[in-house]
Amino acid sequence: MSAERALIVGASHAGAQLAASLRQEGWVGEILLIGDESVLPYQRPPLSKAYLAGKTTLHDLAIRSSEFYAKQDIQIRDATVDSIDRSAHHLSLADGDTLTYSKLALCTGARPRRLPVPGADLTGVYYLRTAADVELIRAAAVPGSRTVIIGGGYIGLETAASLRTLGLEVTVLEATERVLERVTAPDVSAFFTRIHVDEGVTIRTGALVEALSGDGQVREVVLAGGELIPADLVIVGVGVEPNTELAAAAGLAVDDGVVIDDQARTSDPDIVAAGDCASHEMARYGRRIRLESVPSAGEQAKVAAATMCGKSKEIAALPWFWSDQYDLKLQIAGLNTGYDEVLLSGDPAQDRDFTCYYLRGGELIAADCVNRPRDFVNSKRAIAQRLPVDRAELLRAGSG
């Protein structure tokens, strides 16, 4: 066995993929994947969907089996990393142990943004990021319970859909003027509002939460202006923050994420980063972006593994995302930042399938496809290859 040792901090989607890719790229030394949950790396997107709704188990969500890690001689350790000593090439763990590394990967992910209001620490207030979070929510999710979800983004709406299927009363509070305001066009926001209202969800926009109140257990959400909304449980989904403290304390460049180049390398040539914690300059969009996307985490991890093995691969794939709500699958190709025109194929005010195309300067830059997998595949290709836009063809497109 070579004396080379690769340490991966974070048993996330990125961390699990990076460990597997290291072997594929020819790494023959030790591989140690360090995570702070006592379970195998698992898929996180289903947590707010099938897992919360009780349709799948944590075993089902494992990214790879224990047999895979054993066969590939990948060690997994449940531990917390306290600090990185770059000059000595070692990590200090919370349990007092020290581990040396030849190459280091940071896949530390992100954590839920906390709600900065009085009463946010009451019992019955939950965040949804880990399997343990979901188990706590499920235990509290008694049919008929009044649930208030703070945040009308994807996590909030997916959670609302799952809890409605479990028979809870659900109210979604969104601070801005429409749900999904930061990520979609008004037509798409209106569509998801219609669907959720039809399913019995109450949606309140322009709803600023001032405090949570209760007698140790949350009982009410207090809005600006004094209105009280009864709540048996509250779920907060107001975004995430990248876990960059470890990198920053070690002196690595950080800018809304650990800064990486096209090879997933940080400002230290022996350290790479991938996933939700990583911030990457994307030439296609002309800016530095931190993507909260499983496909992007996987691609960055594969590139990072190649870099650790001394090979040269580049992060190049088009970002894409998805969201499952009720019987709807929303698939998103590209990033719509800076769009100046929207084209609609289908009628989001009436239908349960449609595509919203986003253009900038006449170029297709993104597409939101609801129950239209063919449109999604075609849009991904057109955006990645920067194909000329045939408006009539886009409007003719449909489900497939």
Rank of each mutant, 00 (worst) to 15 (best):
A140I: 01
F192Q: 03
I8Q: 00
Y285P: 14
T171I: 12
A131R: 03
A190H: 14
I383C: 13
G334L: 06
D390R: 13
Q350I: 14
V258Y: 00
A6N: 00
A110Y: 07
E199Q: 15
R391L: 03
E177R: 14
A297Y: 01
L359C: 13
P319V: 02
D340M: 10
L168E: 00
S83H: 11
Q17F: 06
I155K: 04
R5L: 10
D82K: 15
D340P: 11
G206V: 09
Q43G: 15
L394G: 08
L335N: 02
E4I: 04
F68G: 00
A317I: 05
V236L: 09
E177Q: 13
Q350H: 13
S279D: 04
E135A: 13
D340V: 03
P388D: 11
V28P: 12
L91T: 03
L343W: 01
R178T: 06
N378I: 07
S92L: 14
R287S: 11
V148C: 09
D82Y: 03
C356R: 04
G239K: 02
A131C: 10
V179Q: 09
I203N: 01
L40Y: 02
P41F: 01
S48P: 07
H13M: 12
R64N: 10
L387C: 09
L104W: 05
R194K: 10
G151F: 02
A62R: 15
G286N: 08
R23Y: 05
C356W: 03
W322M: 13
C107G: 01
A316R: 15
A274F: 04
A94V: 14
V218M: 05
R194G: 07
A132F: 01
G338P: 11
G35H: 02
S102D: 12
T171Q: 05
A141N: 03
H90L: 15
P230H: 04
D82W: 06
V221I: 11
R178Y: 07
E67F: 06
H89G: 02
E227Y: 02
E245W: 04
K380Q: 15
G239T: 02
D73S: 14
V254D: 01
Q75D: 14
D133A: 09
A88L: 14
G310H: 07
Y154A: 12
I8C: 00
V125P: 11
V188M: 12
D327M: 10
D324Q: 12
V209S: 11
V303N: 11
D262P: 09
H89M: 08
F192C: 05
I150W: 00
L33P: 00
G346D: 03
T57I: 10
D351P: 06
A139R: 14
E341D: 13
E363H: 12
S92D: 03
D82I: 11
Q331Y: 11
V134A: 07
A273I: 05
S83L: 08
H13K: 10
I203K: 08
A250C: 08
L40R: 05
S312A: 15
Y126N: 05
A304D: 07
L7A: 04
V125A: 09
G144C: 07
P269H: 07
N371M: 11
P373C: 10
Q325V: 04
